[in-house]
Nucleic acid binder design. Sequence first.
DNA 1: CAAAAAATTCAACGATCATTGAAAATAAGG
DNA 2: CCTTATTTTCAATGATCGTTGAATTTTTTG
Lengths: 226, 226
Amino acid sequence: MQEKRGLGLPKTKENRRVKRKDRILDAAEALFARHGFDGVSMRMVAEKAEVDLALASYHFGSKRGLFDAILLRRAEVLNETRLAALEKCQLEAGDGGPTIEAIIDAYLKPLLAHGYEEDEGWRHYFELVAQVNNSPEFGGQLMTKYFDPMARKFMDAFKKALPGADPESLYWSYHFMSGALTLTFANTGRIDQLSDGLVSSKNMVAAYDRMVPFVAAGFRQLCEKE
Amino acid sequence: MQEKRGLGLPKTKENRRVKRKDRILDAAEALFARHGFDGVSMRMVAEKAEVDLALASYHFGSKRGLFDAILLRRAEVLNETRLAALEKCQLEAGDGGPTIEAIIDAYLKPLLAHGYEEDEGWRHYFELVAQVNNSPEFGGQLMTKYFDPMARKFMDAFKKALPGADPESLYWSYHFMSGALTLTFANTGRIDQLSDGLVSSKNMVAAYDRMVPFVAAGFRQLCEKE
DNA sequence: CAAAAAATTCAACGATCATTGAAAATAAGG
DNA sequence: CCTTATTTTCAATGATCGTTGAATTTTTTG
């Protein structure tokens, strides 16, 4: 009911041309994050994005194509930011290499870097990744597809920081970190209810401040020699 | 294609009457665990359970009713087992109360107790809980509904074992443990791929042996006074 | 400005969805 | 054995699903 095409202020030219694809991505991202792949219909996406039903299929080929485009869009940004943070802390550390805390920090902090508090798009994206990561159907292959090269670089850094560690323990430690991270950013409100409102799941800085030492201690306990 | 009604050996009487409801629950549990609530149709359930399409609606009222029945069925068992393990370790510990490791052990070990390796039903259930736990739509309220009283008893035990700890840190620590646990039991195969097959996500005992010290160290680092 | 290309709309396709009322079959109770 | 209650089947409902071909509009290109 908003405005019919033609009338209303048409804004700038590209505000109507390229913006439609992005509006579809943003709307679908929010919906997939909340309801999962099968809980969202193309009609819901079209309505939320205020575009014609057929337009998403035209731009992305299929519902699955739309889903993949959403995952890819921010994965590229996130991977670059994480790897940049890793290289930065490696350069600063010198020969000895960075500490466990510094590596974990490089892994976690980028999630808060892209204006997490302000940009609901990133919040939706992390909620989506949390669902994908825990999906037995697609979790393994999709996380591998979009995050593996980045994750392997971090694994190498951990190995160097924890010389002589049991490799299996290293991978499990990373896995535990991934699980803690994704549930935290899943924004389910669970911790709010369990703590009777004492803890707010919206306060990601508070969660971040605790996740780094928590995970670091776990890594050390499990992987530190002697 | 198995056997049509009437012919074939009808087994005992109740083997055909009550067993149908259980067959529906088992089939739906496996399907929901893999595809999520919206990824499963009543027809898929009926086909897998080898019953008529209308039977699940008759027994459980609706698709959502079926879903809730699945969650509830094993939640009751799991909560009892966990609380029994908690009380047992509290009795054995005496006045000083149990250690962090003992409490975490009481929380984690019951997942392996119900014949995890043999009983695929429990494996499916944990996969389902992993998805629910990370679902922004239902995660918070469903986990609260089915696991809150048990979780609060464990929180009390943690508080007693870590006197003077910042309450917020305690809740976050529990949250991180929950995330690590659910992702591990989600069985996504992610860790297999990341480690090039070095680590098998099927080896839950290996994961358990590492999760206890990992999480315990995190709790201590974050919540131990001194 | 005209022609070509890209983007958008419209209408419809066949398939599948969850649910249900009525009929049929089975089990339980007297 | 007869009656009643429960369970199971059957058939159909209206709704919604993802996708698509053709028509129309808008943008780009020459």
